[in-house]
Amino acid sequence: MTKSDHQMRDDTAATLPARLLGPQRRNLWFWVFVGPFAIGLALFTYVPLLWSVYLSFFNAHNTVNPTDFVGLGNYTAMLSDDAFLSSLGTFLLFTAFIVPATYALSLSLALMVNRLRFAQAFFRSVFFLPTACSYVVASLIWKLSIFNGVRFGLANTVLGWFGVDQTAWLSTTSPPWYWLVIVTVRLWLQAGFYMILFLAGLQRISPQLYEAAAMDGARPGWQVFRHITFPQLRATSVAVVLLLVINAFQAFDEFYNLLSDARGYPPYARPPLVYLYYTALGRDQNLGLGSAGAVILALIIAMATVVQARWFGLGRKED
């Protein structure tokens, strides 16, 4: 577009509606395309979010239009609630285990698949397939057929061959076998996806680096991995860890489907989302208290994300 073009447009279309429409009606088209999403986002995300913050300052039992203002009462109640605090502990424990475990497992799968000379596509697909399975379905399979507590459950059958007594995997708290069930279902479901990310990362590493390392006398195996492969995967690793932590924050499906029953949820392995679900949306319908918990959780997540971003130098230019 030339300068005189602009000049002409400005002169002829100086009226307000025309200015609102913008050059070539760009503003109009912007809103035609963005508007529906923006409205949807506002209506279904921001309004409920702000409403929830509003509710958190009220005594809101069985109502979303509360009148009984309690100030920070719900927040102090939530922060002095042992069950909520222990749910935060549960969640930290879960994250501290599942993030490194998935990272290590998917990286090793990727390294193994990457070395394959034949049938690589086959194994890549096989390991990736579980990603397509729903958490709910997988949880039910884990709960009802693999790790059920009776003698004909798969795990108990196998252990039975070695003369081991049947174990009630999800009902036993000492030792806490339920963690085995929860962690394995998640590992099975998500390891394949992160393996694909690592594979992509591995294939981007220039072969010349390995050649140069070989020239310098680096022994294949650990030394090459430690000094070439692992550092070269830094960008992928950062992305994987971030995604894993976010996924761990959202943990709900497998916990709920593995451990809840018609009468509620046990006090162990209860992450904050499950606890809040019961507080706010269960028979309790304590929407004020639940909202306060959600706000606290959101603040914790926001802080953790900021710290992580700083730590990894996210957003900084790649050097």
Partner: peptide
């Protein structure tokens, strides 16, 4: 006997029965 009561009691019951 409200839901909050029941939840608190059930949590305690679970710890008594399972964790001793």
């Amino acid at each position: 006997w409200t839901t909050a009561d029941r939840n608190a009691y059930q949590d305690a019951l679970s710890r008594i029965i399972k964790d001793g």
